[in-house]
Every structure is written in structure tokens, then in C-alpha cells.
Write a protein that binds this DNA or RNA. Sequence first.
DNA 1: CGAGAGTATAACCACATAGTCATGTATCAT
DNA 2: ATGATACATGACTATGTGGTTATACTCTCG
Lengths: 128, 128
Amino acid sequence: MYHSRMTRGRKHPSLSAEAVDLVANRFKVLGEPIRIRILQELQSGEKNVTQLVESIGSTQPNISKHLRILQESGLIGRRQAGTAVYCYIADPTVFDLCDAVCASLETRLQDAGRLAAELSGGISRRRS
Amino acid sequence: MYHSRMTRGRKHPSLSAEAVDLVANRFKVLGEPIRIRILQELQSGEKNVTQLVESIGSTQPNISKHLRILQESGLIGRRQAGTAVYCYIADPTVFDLCDAVCASLETRLQDAGRLAAELSGGISRRRS
DNA sequence: CGAGAGTATAACCACATAGTCATGTATCAT
DNA sequence: ATGATACATGACTATGTGGTTATACTCTCG
């Protein structure tokens, strides 16, 4: 039996269904590579739609649609300047999320690498 | 012009396309309410498939499919005991992610609440 | 060796959505 | 006003995937 810790430090009273939906939806917004790319582009400062279209390499309607999703989730904001619309990061904590995922993936890949290295030795040439 | 900070503290050399895909995929795995629910159920200790089916209230094949996705992404692990398969959290950092999202959503909703409160006063009864 | 319990899997359907194309809208310059 | 630029939006298609159903697999027990 694992049983592990019953509750870890702070109490987590099992979120309501709506709260779970909100959290999952935030993750879902981030679950699209092109949206991660957009956030990355905006990390170095605001950019307008055309600039994003060029730097990311997609069509303008596609970028516009993803920008809308990012804005509706509160991750980015917009500022109109003439005919151009400049987008900026509205919730910088999103990069902490990405960093945390990167860290998790890194250890996971390191473990996989260690396993691969271990397997590369074969079984027959191993003494117990 | 916003221009903001050029780079914030640590340098972020714009991840490669594959790295972005990996990150986005991790987020996508978490972008499903039922999978968040499963992780939540496992937070208090390991459970077998039948227990998860009952506590979550879905069908067994559905839960099994989501468990597979969670395992392939390295978030959970499995332990076979007789005919039962017990699942456990393999990457506890996932709860840090959820907490970070919750915190972000909380401030966002608080802001929305403040706006709502402000709007509730109307415009006409406001002096400048 | 059955029989039954616990899971996994395959086939299928329904729906959501990413991408594209065409078009609409708004702002600026001439 | 006219044209041009920047962006948004609607319609459409293709693809991915969540959920269900039926079935297969794998233990354990008698």
C-alpha cells in the first residue's frame, strides 16, 4: 500500500466542478503550440498582429483567432494604435507556468535518458 | 509605446518548435476537466480504476483511456495488485501548476468582481 | 479447467476546433 | 471621397478526440 501523505501541508478541499472546468480551460488555452509561440513572441515586448503573423509564420485570420482566445482567457491585452492593434502580456504568471512545465519535462527526459543509457549496456553483459 | 522589459531576469532563448510542442502537449493533457478530477482524486493517495470510476462517475473504458493519457505524459504511475491496477501521482509538481492557475484565475475573477461592483453604481449617479 | 472480477482495447459516433478563404470593418493618407 | 492598410469575422473543411458500446485480456479463486 502506498497511502502516502493524506493531505500535503495546505488543505485542498477538492475544487467544485465549475472550478475544475475553469482550471482545465486555462490549461486548454495553453495546450496549443501556436498560442505558446504567440506568448513567447510577446514576452520580449508588445507586438502588433502583422508582426506576429510574420514572426510566427501563419495567416492573419488564424493569428487573430488565437489572439482572441488568449485575450478572452485574460492572458493578453490589446492596445489600438491607428489601424494597428498591439498585443501585450496581461498575465506574466503564465511564464511561470511554462517554466514549471519545462522543468518537469526536463527531469522526465533526463530520467528517460538515464534509462536509455542503462539499456544501452544490454542485459547479457551485466553481472547481476 | 509599452516596450516593457526586454527580457526579465533569466534569459529565455525562445524554445525550439519541438520544445514548444512538448510544453503545449503537457498543457493539453491537463486541459480536460475529467483528467484534473482524476489527479485530484489521486492527490489523497493511490486508487484503483474501479475506485476512480465510482468517485468520478464515468464509465470504466473512459477512465481507462484518460489514465493512459495521464500515464503516457508521465503524470501518473501504475501498480498492479492482483487483477486491480492502482494509480498514483508520479509528478507531484502538477499540483503546483494547478495552484498557480488557481491563483491566476482568482486575481482575474477578483478584478472582474471589482469591475462589476464599480459598474453597479451606474454612470449617471457618479460625480466626475 | 471454468467462472467471475478488474482492466484494456477496438470500433464507432458526435462534437469541438484549428486552419483556410473570402469578405467586412475601421483607420489613415492623399 | 478614394484607396490602402490593418485587423476582425463568417463560412467551410479537415482533423482530433471525448464518450459509449462491445469485446478481449488477465488475474484469482473454486
